[in-house]
Computed example of a mutant assay.
Amino acid sequence: MSKPFYKNNLTGNYGVLEGQVVSNQASYLRLRLVNAVGGMIELSHHHENVKPENLVQVSPEEVQKALLGF
């Protein structure tokens, strides 16, 4: 996966950015979540709308360690 990974500090979930959502005068970033499947990190079908201040860019190694344990 070549897109940078982000962590939602409110939920602890990891994902990649997939655009922006504007709802009721508020602006959110759309985070497509990733999960561990068969020892690999894959995109899931789940999304979260996140305020930019609640996101932090993380390394692929941090995502691997969090989701796969190594």
Rank of each mutant, 00 (worst) to 15 (best):
V37F: 06
V63P: 00
R30C: 12
P4K: 09
E18N: 12
P52C: 00
Q57I: 12
G19E: 04
N13H: 14
E53G: 01
L17D: 04
L43Q: 04
L55S: 11
N35L: 08
Y28G: 04
P60E: 11
S23K: 14
K3R: 15
V21L: 15
Q20F: 05
H47S: 05
I41D: 00
E62F: 09
A66H: 07
K3A: 13
L17A: 03
V58K: 14
M1D: 02
H47R: 12
G39E: 08
N13V: 04
E42K: 03
H45W: 05
F5V: 02
P60F: 09
V22K: 15
E53Y: 07
S23C: 09
S23N: 11
N24F: 08
H46C: 00
S27Y: 10
S44D: 09
L29M: 14
G12M: 04
V22D: 14
N24V: 12
H46E: 09
H46L: 10
E42G: 00
Y28Q: 06
E48Y: 03
Y14L: 04
K7C: 05
A26K: 15
Y28T: 02
N49F: 15
L33Q: 10
H46N: 07
F5S: 03
V50T: 02
Q64K: 15
S2W: 08
P4Q: 04
E18K: 13
V22W: 12
V58A: 13
V58T: 13
K65D: 08
L67E: 03
V50K: 01
V16F: 00
A66N: 11
H47T: 13
V34N: 01
P4Y: 02
G69L: 10
N54R: 07
L68K: 11
L10I: 10
H45D: 14
P4C: 04
Q25K: 10
S59D: 07
G12I: 07
L10K: 14
N9G: 09
F70L: 06
V22G: 05
A66Y: 02
Q57N: 06
Y6K: 13
R32K: 15
E18L: 03
N9H: 12
A66S: 15
S23F: 14
A66C: 09
A66T: 10
A66D: 13
H46M: 06
S27M: 15
H47V: 11
